[in-house]
Simulated scan of single mutants.
Amino acid sequence: MASSRDRARKLARAKLDRQLARRAAAAKRRRQIQAGVGAALVLALIVVGSAWALGAFDSDPEKKKAAQDVCVWTPQDGGGNTNLKDVGTPATTGLPTAGTRPMTVTTNQGGPITAALNLTAAPCAGASFAHLAGRSFFDNTKCHEITAEGALHCGDPSGTGIGGPTYTFYDENVPVPVPSGSGKPAYPKGTVALVANPPGANGSQFLLFFKDYNPAKPVYPVIGKVTAGLDVLTKIGALPTVDNGSGAKVKPKTDVVIKSLTVGEVADTPAATGASTTTPSATPSAG
Rank of each mutant, 00 (worst) to 15 (best):
V242G: 01
A248F: 14
V256M: 07
V72C: 08
A148F: 14
G134I: 11
S276M: 13
N108M: 11
S59I: 11
A186C: 11
G224C: 06
G237M: 05
E172Q: 13
A56F: 15
P112Q: 12
K65G: 05
H131W: 12
E145H: 09
S285Q: 01
A2R: 14
L230Y: 02
T92A: 12
R30C: 01
F210V: 04
P123V: 10
K235Q: 15
A53N: 13
A98H: 11
A228H: 00
K217E: 13
K65V: 13
E265W: 04
T93W: 04
P112V: 13
R30D: 02
K249C: 00
P179W: 10
T147F: 10
Q19T: 15
A286H: 06
Q19D: 14
K10F: 07
Q19P: 00
A39K: 11
E62S: 07
H153P: 02
T82G: 02
I113E: 00
G287C: 09
D69P: 02
T168S: 12
R31K: 10
G237D: 04
D231F: 06
T97K: 09
R135C: 09
G80A: 10
I146K: 00
P199H: 11
G99V: 02
F138Q: 00
L16G: 05
N83P: 01
G287V: 09
P221L: 00
T262S: 15
P75H: 08
D139G: 09
P90Q: 04
R23D: 03
I33A: 15
N214T: 05
T100R: 01
S128L: 03
A53I: 04
A133K: 07
G164E: 02
L239F: 12
A51S: 15
S50R: 08
A115M: 14
G99A: 10
F210Y: 11
G38F: 12
H144C: 09
T97E: 03
A196F: 11
V70W: 07
T147N: 06
D17E: 15
L207F: 05
T147C: 05
K184P: 02
D171T: 01
P284I: 11
A12R: 13
G164W: 01
F206K: 01
A122T: 05
F209E: 01
K249F: 03
D6P: 04
A196R: 05
G163E: 03
G79I: 11
V226S: 03
V176A: 14
T278K: 07
R31G: 03
Q205K: 12
P240G: 04
K10C: 03
R23K: 13
G159C: 09
A193T: 02
G88C: 09
Q68F: 07
C143H: 10
Q32V: 14
L132W: 01
S50A: 04
A26H: 05
H153T: 00
P90C: 10
G274I: 05
A39L: 13
E172H: 04
G126E: 08
E149Q: 15
V222R: 03
T277G: 08
A286E: 09
P185R: 07
Q68K: 15
T92K: 15
A286P: 00
T120C: 04
A286W: 07
A67I: 06
C143W: 03
V219R: 03
M1N: 06
